[in-house]
């Protein structure tokens, strides 16, 4: 399931973008060191393959609904983690651009959720150690199922965390997890069967093919377990650091989510560091809408309805909505005006 811009806060969106760009940069650097020229067109065309394959629907047995291929796992198995991550990133980018699936700020999240986990966690930690050099079709099915389920559970859990940390949704943590994980269990099972099915089909129809690609994969680009763990820890630290920095400068999102996750209610407003400086500026200017630090004295409703949380600017709602209607009306007029002007030109 794709994360959406509208549910994101800038802090979370940026953090995930930073993580994704870091991993993408690392992957392309690794690949560039020892890439076989043959891989360059191969990766691109396989991206188009995943894209096209996703458009073919499959009827899920017994339910009548339909699903399709995700692709992260199958790419990791065929191309290895580094190339697979880049291909997955390019598939999701094209989807974000052409279908607006998710959106451009959420693209960082989506690449992370659907690319990072299958390629850099599940493949080296689960798939590869369990499959070894085996070409046994039963084993491929079992390991693929396990891997796909693991990757999708991680991805789904990330969607939950990203949404909660962004603080635009009211869904409590527990309910959200209960909603997302089972759906993705089903999706994971299908993904696993399809992945295994395609790998087994290719192994039986053209056994030499996967080996020849594996030979083109640079040997240096295989990842060691240790490296994965170290990278993961480093990324976690960076992510944590970035998040807490954003949290201190941009209280809107995190405050709320901490409350939701811990159930402890609102934390005391931190009045130190950057936050205090910003608040000082706000108090002087009262520019930031939504915070409304200079109370509008002429608004009686404010006192009774002002909620316990910051962010609801109720006092100005009537004039605000009138204004919004006027502004939207003007925008529509501008649009229609340009259109009819253009129409006369043509």
């Amino acid at each position: 399931m794709h994360m959406a811009d509208a549910l994101l806060s800038p802090a979370v969106g940026t953090t995930l973008w930073v993580g994704t760009v870091a991993v993408g940069g690392y992957a392309s650097k690794k690949l560039k060191e020892r890439i076989d020229d043959r891989m360059i067109p191969l990766m691109g065309v396989l991206g188009a393959f995943i894209f096209a394959a996703q458009m073919i629907n499959i009827t899920i047995p017994g339910t009548g609904s339909s699903g399709h291929l995700g692709g992260g796992m199958i790419l990791a198995i065929i191309l290895g983690p580094h190339a697979a991550f880049l291909v997955m990133a390019s598939v999701l980018t094209v989807q974000a651009l052409f279908f607006a699936d998710g959106g451009l700020l959420a693209l960082g999240c989506n690449i992370w959720n659907l690319g990072f986990y299958p390629c850099f966690l599940v493949y080296p930690l689960i798939y590869k150690p369990l499959i070894g050099d085996s070409h046994n079709s039963g084993r491929i099915i079992a390991v693929s199922l396990l891997s796909a389920i693991a990757a999708l559970q991680l991805g789904a859990f990330s969607v939950v965390m990203e949404t909660l940390l962004s603080g635009k949704s009211e869904l409590p943590f527990g309910a959200f997890v209960l909603l997302m994980q089972p759906i993705h269990l089903a999706i994971g099972v299908i993904e696993g069967f399809v992945t295994a099915g395609v790998i087994n089909y290719v192994l039986s129809a053209r056994p030499e093919l996967l080996e020849s690609i594996a030979a083109s994969r640079s040997h240096g680009a295989e990842i060691s377990l240790r490296k994965v763990m170290i990278t993961f820890v480093v990324l976690a630290v960076i992510t944590g650091g970035a998040l807490s920095w954003f949290a201190s400068t941009h209280p809107d999102g995190l405050e709320w989510s901490i409350e939701k996750v811990t159930g402890k209610g609102e934390l005391q407003e931190a009045e130190h560091g950057i936050a205090r400086v910003l608040k000082g500026i706000q108090k002087k200017t009262a520019f930031l809408p939504g915070y409304n630090f200079k109370p509008e004295g002429n608004d009686p409703k404010k006192a009774e309805t002002a909620p316990a949380r910051p962010g609801i600017e109720v006092g100005t709602s009537v004039s605000g909505i009138v204004g919004a209607v006027i502004v939207l009306g003007m925008i529509v007029l501008i649009g229609v005006g340009i259109r009819s002007f253009r129409g006369r030109d043509a």
Partner: peptide
């Protein structure tokens, strides 16, 4: 990265063909 951008371009080129 150039490698990533060339992926996008290949993907776009062969999207319609595939």
């Amino acid at each position: 990265p150039a490698l990533f951008v060339s992926q996008l371009l290949f993907l776009y080129r062969y999207l319609f063909v595939l």
